[in-house]
Design a protein around this nucleic acid. Structure first.
Lengths: 239, 239
DNA sequence: GAGCGCCGTATTGTATCCATCACTCCTTGT
DNA sequence: ACAAGGAGTGATGGATACAATACGGCGCTC
């Protein structure tokens, strides 16, 4: 953790820096964050650091209790399941709202994202792959409204953190993901919101199940199945 | 805004105090919060006050930009619609997950909440009515998991703030709400998750439409209709 | 008279200092 | 030997002092 080069205000700079480090797994779950050493390392005082902690606390990336050190939020299969139980229905509604407002330029950009992902997948570069991956998924839901999008961004952060930790050594399912991404984009182009919504729900659920399998083979994702089933229901015409 | 009597830590005390004041509308939307006067009024220094601001910022109740004063988040019909676009699907899935785990004691407690609501409704006491109302709705989804419940609590806060401001002078729809609450609880007792989920979605949408009508008659809640329609779909047997 | 720029003041952002709490290890008594 | 208590140490919580930024008013210029 180097000194901050940013000319922005310290709270934002510290927040971004810590958030990134947590999401990339550089600071592992459960790690204790002591204020004095960390503030020194970042080259700021404890005051802005503590404010950044509060932001991260509400984002769910840190947990802290009074007079105790903050800790990076830990993982659990239950938490992962609940994460996707919220994530899947929201993504499903968000893509429904986005599809009618998609421009052909959006489709083209997403195709570019897919191409980039292929490139990084061939190089087995998970780090590079994640960037267009996130961009692609962001654009799938970008017209659902500011509030919805912001909430989905936060949930994405958490999901990405789980993926990074548990799928670290695996093939990351590049091929299966690429196929799903392409089918999904095709449904978007066709304006088929029912199909796209169901495909997106399944795609997310696949990831969730992959991660869950790595985390705890015995875990039965009952709630996840319900959320997936609901999200896959087609809406009758005329709505 | 009196001095803080709490013996808890200042950040939490300040946070709760401000959050309550914002939700009750005592601090109106758009209001500027200056640190020095507010800190004096609360009897704390600016340090814990600023940390509380950061929490409220991430909760969406305050918005701030660097070197500018924090402001209480403003309302807009679009934001309200987006709020319910997230709220309705999440509540719908949450009650589905809760119903199988409901005990008869839960039903009894909720009937007690309904009785309390009737009592306050008769006295036209909106303030008192809101407490059992919130309790009732909390219990409807309480077994959906910690993460889901916490997210719903935050969304509830925002919804309650809209309700309070826009329905202030009205009858608050006590009678219609009471009928919907009773039907919904009956479906829970019967274990009919499909029905309860749809009823809850409709109930929430009714409130949203009431508030929207007060805020902007001309607004067309297209996204809200989609979210409501999705949330009302029945799940086939066997899931 | 209107618009632009400068300066003073008010407000926010950060650092430092002090108070308080928790945790550890050592002592002491049984 | 073991458990309970206490002192010491190191952490966090909060208040204050200082720095930097923004905002408003005033005067100047065109």
């Amino acid at each position: 953790m180097e000194k901050l080069a940013s000319e922005r205000h310290n709270v934002d700079a510290v927040h971004d820096r810590l958030r990134g480090a947590i999401l990339r797994g550089e600071i592992p779950p459960g790690e204790v964050l002591q204020q004095v050493p960390l503030a020194e390392e970042l080259g700021v005082s404890r005051t802005p650091l503590r404010e950044a902690f509060r932001l991260l606390q509400r984002e769910g990336l840190l947990e802290g209790s009074p007079n105790r050190s903050y800790r990076v939020t830990s993982f659990s299969p239950r938490d992962l399941e609940e994460l996707y139980v919220t994530f899947i229905p929201l993504q499903a509604i968000a893509i429904r709202l986005t599809i009618p407002r998609m421009q052909s330029a959006d489709i083209a950009t997403m195709m570019g994202d897919l191409a980039q992902m292929d490139h990084y997948a061939q190089a087995q570069d998970v780090e590079g792959w994640e960037e267009p991956h996130r961009e692609y998924h962001r654009r799938l839901v970008q017209h659902a409204g500011r509030r919805v999008v912001e909430l989905l961004e936060q949930l994405w952060d958490h999901a990405a953190r789980y993926r990074r930790v548990y799928l670290a050594g695996t093939s990351y399912g590049f091929d299966a993901a690429a196929a799903e991404h392409r089918e999904l984009l095709e449904s978007c182009r066709a304006g088929n919101a029912n199909l796209a919504s169901a495909q997106l729900a399944r795609h997310l659920a696949h990831t969730a199940l992959d991660v869950l399998a790595m985390a705890d083979e015995a875990f039965d994702p009952q709630a996840l199945k319900v959320a997936l089933a609901v999200a896959q229901l087609p809406l009758p015409d005329g709505v």
